[in-house]
Design a protein around this nucleic acid. Structure first.
Lengths: 126, 126
DNA sequence: TTGTAATTGCAACTTAATTGCATTAAATTT
DNA sequence: AAATTTAATGCAATTAAGTTGCAATTACAA
């Protein structure tokens, strides 16, 4: 179990993810709530929210950790095979709802799949 | 252009990639050559080799940077859409030669694709 | 209201990666 | 073969993401 007590900090972080579906980097999140809580707290809350399947994490193009709200995950069944798209121009990340087929790999037991597409987003591809 | 002079350090790093097809993390590479060159040199050589299309880089499951030898890349045409597989047990990374179809994303100009599969490798899945 | 254990703040720490600058050494020219 | 040029390197310091230990705080159940 991740979150046990619904503290002010937890509520604050959750609100950010509920405002829109956009993924956020930890760095970005820390900046957003820097007047309300410590960065360690942010890391720990994100950990717990992910354990509960409320949000999911992935690495952005620069290796930084990003989080976004899950649409159909629980603590037990944490399926997030959807790909992410990061803009090379504005760095923004979107969750994509396309389905990508991964073939089985001989002699390998694939447990998770991380797909990051990079390029120009709608706004930046003008 | 990346590499201009073929120094001892460059040769040393290249040899490592030629020994086998296995991908190596920068941390691992620095450790391997720590008696022969400075870590800054390792970072810079890897940068240059990648610019020349001799090796390619990607992020491993922990966000660390990994490098592996390219099979059909040049400085101009750096196509590396092959996925990578990292073992959750031994951390080893392999380049996979399977082809994964990425659908076009509406209003997005996809420039590159990074796919990282994680799970148990052949050795660790016993 | 009180007890207790989860949560937080803070400072220190770890580690990957970068930077500036003086020095060294490939490789070209003389 | 020596001189010249400048790419490449070493080193120390720095930046930044992420972690840890511990004391103080606070949610919440009894």
């Amino acid at each position: 179990m991740g979150i046990v007590r619904k503290t002010k900090s937890v509520t604050t972080v959750l609100q950010i993810f509920e405002e829109n579906q956009e993924a956020k980097s930890v760095v970005n999140l820390i900046e957003l709530v820097k007047d309300k809580m410590n960065k360690t707290t942010v890391y720990r809350i994100l950990d717990r929210l992910e354990q509960d399947g409320i949000i999911h994490s992935f690495n952005g193009k620069d290796g930084l950790k990003w989080y976004a709200k899950c649409k159909g995950c629980s603590a037990e069944h944490h399926t997030d095979k959807h790909p992410h798209f990061q803009c090379t121009e504005c760095d923004k990340v979107e969750c994509l709802s396309v389905d990508i087929k991964i073939p089985t790999i001989k002699n390998h037991k694939v447990e998770s799949t991380d797909i990051l597409l990079t390029g120009r987003c709608e706004v930046c591809s003008v």
